[in-house]
Design a protein around this nucleic acid. Structure first.
Lengths: 232, 232
DNA sequence: CAGCACACTTGATCATTATCAATGCGCCAT
DNA sequence: ATGGCGCATTGATAATGATCAAGTGTGCTG
């Protein structure tokens, strides 16, 4: 029984994730049923790794609740955060021999896990899904290029402003207020700056009246207009 | 007659490009024949654009001779170079509604152009090719993540060292000597630094005996060992 | 309720990198 | 040859950001 309920939950999540990407594809409901049949929910505590950089890429992951962070670390202790993933985002789509980053739970979370072998079967069965999946990969690639542009061309404070606008858009649910699930250090490692520089950026944006900081993690964008122009 | 000769040349190029990516795929020769049937050679003069950022992505391109640069510019005059493409590299694989960058000819060059519509037909006909194509996209994505890591975590001089090692690998044909097809400004825009910083990086690496600069563009790596450790 | 731990903030200083300016060098056309 | 042009180098200075070092909450634990 509880398994049946889980399947319904999984299917709802898959629909809200894949449905948005694949809704115009014929047989959309059929392939989501097949995915749901195989998909599993797995829980991770804050700080645990969902997968690691050198693992064989056996699964595709979708956060159902909670947030993930994709990162790469070096022996020398430096770390680059590649992306933050929230409910319904996808991870591990296009890895070949091994993941090229680790996925760490930012919060306690439940993650839907789909075997890549099954995905491949579905692609063979529904070529239109395979095509759309490739489009999704292309979209992710273009997001990373955006990030690369920002890293190469913008100052630290501008990068922080971009980041906050992105978070407002993805976490704000249509409002200007959102709760960040990551630390200042995570943000700094995402934007290629020191923790202190990130913190000073927050302080300056607050002092200038572009954002308000209700608590360390609870942010409101109080002047979108100015924040946007500040970011460019 | 000359058309037949062109087809042979195109087929040779396609084989050396796609063959390396797809050689283990069944029907590899068949699909390359079909590609060659449709592929066209197009020439561009140095500085011309092969395609622009906002164009509809109608083709996939492969330099047959000469080099390309993938870049994005803003109205305010800043520019990020995303990649340099040499003979046999691929451009425009995974663009959806529009290219997310422009491709500019670094040198006079001849480029093979394949319609994406044809590619799609071939994917439908040879699913194994579609799968490998997706793997290639995944590989490109991982290269961009490497670049993002370097941009976020390395100093300007380290980024330049990385760049030179990459160029040695891709242009050196097994030797330590290579001719750069791009200007100092192009390198600076690729690595997110000013022209002057790039130039100072060259001078320092030369002074420290890690590279020698025969002319502005003709470089030899004289101490790979040290250059590698300098890059980390 | 005290005190400790942890994350963030702020300050002071130093290193890196950008910017502005001048100079040098090779190449081409006259 | 010579002058000019485009690109690269080099120098001086300013801005940006990193690092080191206190301080400031805030929440948890005893």
């Amino acid at each position: 029984m509880s398994l049946d309920i889980n399947k319904v939950v999984i299917k709802t999540s898959l629909t809200s994730c894949f449905g948005s990407h694949f809704k115009e594809v014929e047989g959309a409901n059929a392939f989501i049923d097949e995915l749901a049949e195989d998909a599993e929910e797995v829980s991770f505590a804050q700080g645990e790794y969902v997968f690691r950089e050198k693992d064989a890429p056996e699964y595709v992951y979708i956060p159902e609740s909670g947030s993930l962070m994709l990162e790469r670390s070096t022996a020398s202790g430096s770390r680059q955060v590649f992306a933050f993933l929230f409910t319904g985002n996808l991870a591990g789509l296009s890895e070949n021999v091994s993941y090229s980053f680790s996925a760490k739970a930012l919060t306690n979370c439940v993650v839907i896990r789909i075997s890549r072998k099954l995905m491949q079967d579905i692609f063979d069965k529904y070529p239109a899904v395979a095509k759309r999946y490739h489009d999704v990969t292309g979209h992710i690639l273009s997001l990373i290029l955006d990030q690369l542009f920002i890293m190469g061309q913008k100052s630290a404070h501008q990068r922080l402003a971009h980041f906050l606008l992105d978070m407002e858009h993805r976490l704000g649910r249509g409002t200007h207020r959102f709760l960040l699930p990551m630390s200042r250090q995570d943000i700094a490692d995402y934007l290629g700056m020191s923790l202190e520089t990130a913190s000073r950026g927050f302080s300056k944006l607050k002092k200038d009246g572009l954002i308000s900081i209700e608590s360390n993690y609870q942010i409101t964008v109080t002047d979108s207009e100015k924040l946007i122009s500040y970011a460019d």
